[in-house]
Design a protein around this nucleic acid. Structure first.
Lengths: 337, 337
DNA sequence: ATGAAAGCGCTAACAG
DNA sequence: CTGTTAGCGCTTTCAT
């Protein structure tokens, strides 16, 4: 009695033998269907189906040098902001017949470098989201394989960035319209390119409107960074604060509440990202919405575009941003008392 | 003048040639350092370093049949619950020297099946989180390669589940202590194993304490499922509701607020998962906390354990749960009026 | 301790 | 249109 089921999955050679044709014919039947007699092809395909044949990606990769896989590195998977990027990237990758390898760099440049190193040969290219690496390191990585960046612009590299110039202007306009004479920017990690961009935009917009802008930080771009930031804000007596991201803003608001400050009555709070949670926290957070899923998808598309040839003369794709005004911002408090 | 930098990455053969030894020696220098003369080894390693040699994973995979990669499939990446699972899995995988491939099945059994199929040959095994496939389909998948399940128990398969028996008891005890004579369970997808487990536990606990339990649904386990659920709850006049998960609970609370119902004054709300956001929504949500990162990590460990040999006689690992009591639950309303 | 040689599964010339 | 042949980069007997 023969064994019920072959433990070893069927190979192309098995199919060829069973079908009574050469391996190359089987290969062609799959990859260049036109180039094989219709009859033969159908026969081969039928046998393949019967044997449950599926091509071995490792063998294909060895031969072609392409793994049909791309690496996506994000600083923190649990940050809902990146969940959007991941989802968009996943979708675009699937659409291009590519598989995603995901890595969490833990906001750590060293870790990021190590992961790029580790995955390099296993993927056809990388999407680096909010990378913490320096421009030079990024350029070096791009030298060894295709790279696309999300929310980071490096000359010569493909990148997708949010329109922070417009976004920060929207924020400052909003605060100015409420009569705030000044605001504090609660900064995130010093390595954060988008953080620098945000601050630069805010400062420029503030100058234009005659507001005074001060930068605090760096703080961790997480809930955990909130308390320290809040305390600094309280001490400063600021009437409005713009936070590096929503996580930090939410963490800050919680601390503010603990300390008896009301948002927006005593202090207005603005965030960046419009993450999941920004609309149901208390109070709902005024924040700059980015198109995170779009960003992830666009980055993958940009990567795909440079997969065959190595040219990267693509202009940075900048995605629109939109200020979502909710309940965390309001008029400047009347401190006449 | 020789070209500045070889465009093609160095191969093992290049190293061998440069070092003046056989390819097999280079191979051994890396994989069986003891089996090669210390002198030779150091020489080879030095050359390899100089050439920037890194083994080609595809070639290794082709030879060994092992990719050192595992697939992680989740129903919805943007659900913070799964972010925890992903993070834990990522960490455990990295610790085991494995890489994660991530897939979002979009709560869709067909999609899940397709992804398993597509990735099967590219990974050494799968961690399936809250799979939507049937037991039989799962068993079939496990027949073709190692599988570990998160929050799903199938006899014969490795699985990590939360302790819903204890958890649901905690919930019902809590509601009973507040004097609620009955509650409504707002159910998620019918295919959800944990959903069935939750309802079963709740009903059992309710019976034991003499509470009346009713099940509504199914509803989408997302914010978007909230409104419909809320309307059903309002119509029922329930004083307490337990939701399939936090996303649904939060969506429901928002709709309740729109309809003028106060939580917990008019109706108490309990969720499952303790996701990011459950502690800062309004009001903060009473919910059953699971150890999601632990679950992800344990599942990967269970998978790793069955990577060499195919035995899966591992008992289900059940992780403790803990009711986090916040502000969304309170005494049964006095409806004397 | 090291080398020679075969082969993992697949694709790509090159013949025919 | 199809078969033959020769590798892709690496590991692994089997000799030496």
């Amino acid at each position: 009695m023969p064994s019920a089921r072959p433990p070893r999955p069927a190979t192309l050679t098995d199919v060829a033998a069973e079908a009574g044709v050469a391996p190359s014919t089987v290969s062609r039947a799959f990859s260049r269907p036109q180039r094989v007699n219709r009859h033969t092809r159908e026969h081969v395909l039928a046998i393949a189906a019967r044997l449950g044949y599926e091509p071995n990606p490792a063998a294909q990769a060895l031969e072609s040098g392409r793994t049909r896989t791309i690496g996506l590195l994000v600083p923190d998977i649990t940050n809902p902001y990146f969940a959007g990027v991941i989802k968009g990237a996943e979708r675009a990758a699937a659409a291009a017949g590519l598989t995603l390898m995901l890595g969490d760099t833990q906001e750590n440049p060293t870790q990021e470098e190590a992961m790029v190193q580790r995955l390099r040969r296993a993927v056809d290219g990388f999407v680096l989201s909010a990378p913490r690496l320096s421009d030079d390191e990024l350029l070096a990585a791009a030298d060894k394989g295709p790279v696309a960046l999300v929310n980071r612009a490096v000359p010569g590299l493909a990148c997708v960035v949010a329109d922070f110039d417009s976004g920060t202007r929207q924020i400052v306009d909003h605060l100015a319209s409420y009569g705030h004479p000044s605001f504090v920017f609660v900064g995130g990690p010093a390595e954060s390119w988008s953080g620098r961009r945000r601050w630069r935009g805010l400062r420029t917009a503030a100058r234009r409107l005659g507001l005074e802008a001060t930068r605090f930080g760096p703080f961790q771009p997480k809930l955990a960074g909130g308390p320290a930031a809040a305390d600094a804000v309280v001490a400063s007596g600021a009437t409005a604060v713009v936070c590096h991201n929503d996580m930090l803003a939410i963490g800050l608001m919680r601390r503010l509440a603990q300390r008896g400050l009301r948002v927006p009555d005593d202090v207005s709070v603005v965030g960046f990202d419009d993450i999941f949670g920004a609309d149901f926290c208390n109070p709902p957070l005024t924040t700059l919405a980015e198109r995170t899923e779009d960003a992830g998808a666009r980055a993958v598309e940009a990567l795909v575009r440079q997969l065959p040839r190595r040219t990267t003369d693509q202009p940075a794709r900048v995605l629109p941003t939109e200020l979502v005004i909710r309940a965390s911002t309001g008029p400047v408090p009347d401190r006449a008392g």
